[in-house]
């Protein structure tokens, strides 16, 4: 512990605080130390971002199964609960996924809030005149599209997972997910909110996917334009895939089969 680095002596930096002095939780734990740097918090946002983007793409693709008809869609919903049986009991994998996703979303938001506070403090006085030369509207509005998504996720879980909002009593079915989607999205208000939120998601991913690749050091200046294009294409495909469902419901292509 008394070991000092050569460069400490050279520049007169302090040695690591002696044991017992306030050094926070788990001093010397590499992951905790990483979290304590702005770069580490950003890495947390990128890694949880990978998980969330993976989920969003899978969820979008899964939603499209609704176009295969009521039976196929409901079977898919059942599959999500029975997958892995008999190795793991009913719905265990689903619950693991839920816990991982919730933890990812919370960490993502926590890091975003901390970094935003640091960034605001770093420029207390803004410029009288400032021109943006490189950034995009999507990048400048990440905090707002993020908040929109958080609101959407809470509403969406209360709506189509729990049936606690948006359904008149008894209208939410625990057997037919197809029925829930078609009934739940048949109102203009709800559908428009879903579509607007997917617009927010599209903006968030347009900057988010490319940003995550840069943060994880998968970017070089030679390929940066291609990565940005990839990010935009994925964001747009996810947007189209998601809004297909509320649009189809509004257009009456997925009428209630009851």
């Amino acid at each position: 512990m008394t070991q000092q680095f050569i460069s400490d002596r050279a520049v007169g930096l302090k040695a690591p605080a002696p044991a017992g002095k306030s050094r926070g939780v788990w001093p010397g734990n590499p992951v905790v130390a990483l979290w304590r740097t702005t770069i580490g918090k950003k890495a947390v946002m990128a890694v949880t971002g990978v998980i969330l983007v993976g989920f969003v793409i899978a969820h979008m693709a899964g939603n499209l199964k609704i176009f295969l008809g009521e039976k196929a869609f409901n079977e898919y919903a059942l599959f999500l609960r029975t997958v892995g049986e008999p190795l793991v009991p009913y719905s265990v994998l689903l619950w693991i996924a839920r816990v991982v996703l919730l933890a990812s979303a919370l960490l993502h938001i926590w890091a975003a809030v901390e970094l935003t506070r640091i960034n605001w403090a770093a420029r207390p006085r803004s410029y009288a005149v400032k021109r943006s030369l490189a950034t995009t509207a999507a990048a400048l509005t990440m905090r707002y599209s993020g908040v929109l998504l958080a609101v959407f996720i809470v509403y969406h879980l209360l709506h189509l997972t729990l049936g606690a909002v948006g359904f008149s009593s008894g209208a939410f079915s625990h057997e037919s997910v197809y029925h829930n989607v078609v009934t739940g999205l048949s109102g203009w208000f709800v559908s428009i909110f879903y579509i607007l939120a997917m617009g927010g998601l599209c903006l968030h991913l347009d900057h988010g996917i490319w940003s995550m690749l840069q943060t994880l050091d998968l970017n070089t200046n030679r390929i940066s334009r291609r990565l940005r294009l990839l990010s935009r294409v994925v964001a747009f495909l996810v947007f189209l895939g998601f809004i297909a469902v509320p649009i189809a419901v509004l257009a009456g292509w997925l009428g209630p089969k009851e």
Binding site: M1, Q3, F5, P16, A17, S22, R23, G24, V25, P27, G28, N29, P30, V31, V32, A33, L34, R36, T37, T38, G40, K41, E114, R117, I118
Partner: peptide, 20 residues
Amino acid sequence: ALLRPHRHPLAERIAPGAPS
């Protein structure tokens, strides 16, 4: 630098709460 195991207490250089 932080995630590789080190025999010197490198990670302790990051003071708690420093960036915030």
